[in-house]
């Protein structure tokens, strides 16, 4: 379980996150929804200890982030964070070198799944393929939690489909996923839990399935209610 408790984050005098608390469970896809600039990326960075928080606490399976934590949680940022003049193979080699949780077989499988060429240089890849490599590097780790930052933004339609397919596959099964997005359409049917962020706070945290079944409301309906109601 990922627990985010009363997290506050300031940039200079501006409070980006005022008081954010939510939890994300293993085996569930939790979707952080909010308009651009609401602090979703910052929140993911904070969970990965990539940026300090001013207040609050973040626990992964009950523990604060330490070096071993990175073997069980991976972040797929909105841009690929590898050295551009590496080939895909070299990037995979790098991951294999440093992570014991790197799963070679799965990496190969993903490579086939995305129809990527090992010997391509990262700098020469199209946007869609770059996003796929990014996904590959994050998902080929045998981790319990995967955080994805806007996996669909700025990507062509076919790549989106391919990426969306990942979510229904065994690649995601049993893992805890936090995904941020500002447009929920592509994955609405996949998500288990929704956390609505606005003005640095969690405005609503709800179970998507339940909303659908009990109230007959889609995620978008709930959002409409929250934002306009």
């Amino acid at each position: 379980m990922i627990e985010v408790k009363e997290v506050e984050k300031k940039f200079g005098r501006k409070k980006i996150l005022k008081d954010v608390s939510f939890t994300a469970n293993k085996g569930e896809i939790t979707c952080l929804i909010g308009i651009n600039g609401v602090g979703k990326t910052t929140l993911l960075n904070a969970i990965m200890a990539l940026t300090p928080i001013n207040n609050g606490e973040i626990l992964i399976d009950g523990e604060p982030v330490k070096e071993k934590t990175f073997e069980k949680i991976s972040l797929i940022p909105d841009a690929l964070t590898m050295i551009p003049n590496m080939t895909i193979e070299e990037a995979m080699e790098f991951m294999n070198d440093f992570y014991t949780s790197w799963n070679r077989e799965r990496a190969e499988e993903l490579l086939g799944f995305f129809r990527l060429n090992k010997n391509d240089r990262i700098s020469s890849l199209s946007k869609g393929n770059t996003a796929k490599v990014n996904l590959l590097l994050g998902l080929a780790l045998d981790v319990d939690y995967v955080l994805m930052d806007e996996p669909f933004s700025g990507i062509d339609m076919f790549s989106r489909e391919e990426i969306a397919n990942v979510f229904t596959s065994h690649l995601i099964e049993n893992r805890g996923v936090i995904i941020t997005t500002h447009e929920v359409n592509d994955i609405e049917h996949l998500i288990d839990k929704v956390v609505l962020l606005d003005d640095g706070m969690v405005t609503k945290e709800f179970d998507a399935e339940k909303a659908r079944e009990d109230d007959g409301m889609s995620v978008i309906d709930v959002m409409r209610e929250v934002y306009q109601g």
């Binding site: 200890a49 990539l50 070096e67 073997e71 991976s74 940022p77 841009a79 590898m82 440093f98």
Partner: peptide, 17 residues
């Protein structure tokens, strides 16, 4: 620098910083 900010990867390595 650049759009592929490598420091993400460095800081997320499962080793002491």
């Amino acid at each position: 620098v650049g759009k592929n900010i490598f420091v993400y990867r460095l800081l997320m390595l499962p080793t002491t910083r």
